[in-house]
Design a binder for these strands. Structure first.
Lengths: 157, 157
DNA sequence: GTCGCTGCAAAGTCTTTGCAGAGAG
DNA sequence: CTCTCTGCAAAGACTTTGCAGCGAC
């Protein structure tokens, strides 16, 4: 039985729910709940960023040095989580994918090409339009990403 | 001096303009106009699809078997064209990038994470909203990109 | 002629797979 | 106990790089 210290603050309940979903997913597919899978889920949960398999692996090595989790396990677990729609992967310009928990709140980015500052935003109207365009084409959205590039207020001075 | 048969139909003028831009780009950077670079540009121009380096290479081998263009040249030329903003690359779910000529009319992409198929679309409403969000934040837009990821109609079956 | 370009093959990256031992159920 | 998981290392897939000869300018 895998056991790790899960000393979260106020978010503990949310995480427990997530963990429970994961356990059910595993049970339903006759898969095993291992400590490696648990810490990977937990690390994804704790991270505010989109993680590459490599950066996730580094986090795991730093935070759980005793487990000696292999990169292959990271890839295998991410593939499992993605298949089960628990995480979403995004490909940005560079090579490789980035992963994030599917449960997180969505937002888009406005990026200043002068100072590099990034502003997050959400626009309900755009979200609605996206859904309706997708629906029209019979497309089932799993995620989207939008970046607006330009010069921010400060840099225009 | 590179020379290939450019027997287009009504689009010849548009292509000549593009080719001219390319030649100027090369000249400005003291780079050379080679037949390999010309046929790569032409093949991208003729193609209606988003091409991977590999699929582009196949097209080149079929259409210009005498040139024996190497895959390395394809990669190098695509990198050159992308740096110069003449082509745009997209990363989708699977591994690898797909390229398209940047000169084409602006559009966004809807990408199937199952089969990799890409549908282009433009929505005036979204474009307007982007402008208005940016204006509200005092942000001066230079460019934007938007990708919607999901499962296409076919792959849902 | 000069110096960048090309094809080839070798070297890098990133990701997946085979396998024998470890461990969850 | 059984059968999946894991870490390791080897194998794959995709991309980049080094080099000697070729070719645009």
């Amino acid at each position: 039985m895998p056991t790790i210290n899960t000393d979260f603050n106020d978010k503990t309940i949310e995480y427990k729910q997530l963990l429970n979903d994961f356990k059910n997913l595993l049970k339903d597919n006759a898969l095993k709940f291992t400590i490696q899978r648990e810490v990977i889920l937990q690390t994804l949960y704790k991270s505010d960023e989109h993680l590459t398999p490599e950066s996730l692996h580094h986090l795991l090595q730093n935070n759980f040095p005793d487990l000696k989790i292999g990169i292959a396990t990271v890839y295998r677990t991410l593939a499992l989580l993605e298949d089960s729609q628990m995480v979403t992967s995004l490909s940005f310009g560079a090579q490789g994918k980035k992963y994030e928990l599917g449960a997180k709140e969505h937002h888009d980015h406005m990026i200043c090409t002068s100072c590099g500052d990034i502003t997050e935003f959400v626009d309900e109207e755009i979200e609605k339009r996206q859904d309706s365009i997708a629906a029209k084409l019979g497309f089932k959205i799993s995620d989207h990403s939008m970046q607006i590039y330009g010069i921010c207020k400060n840099c225009q001075k």
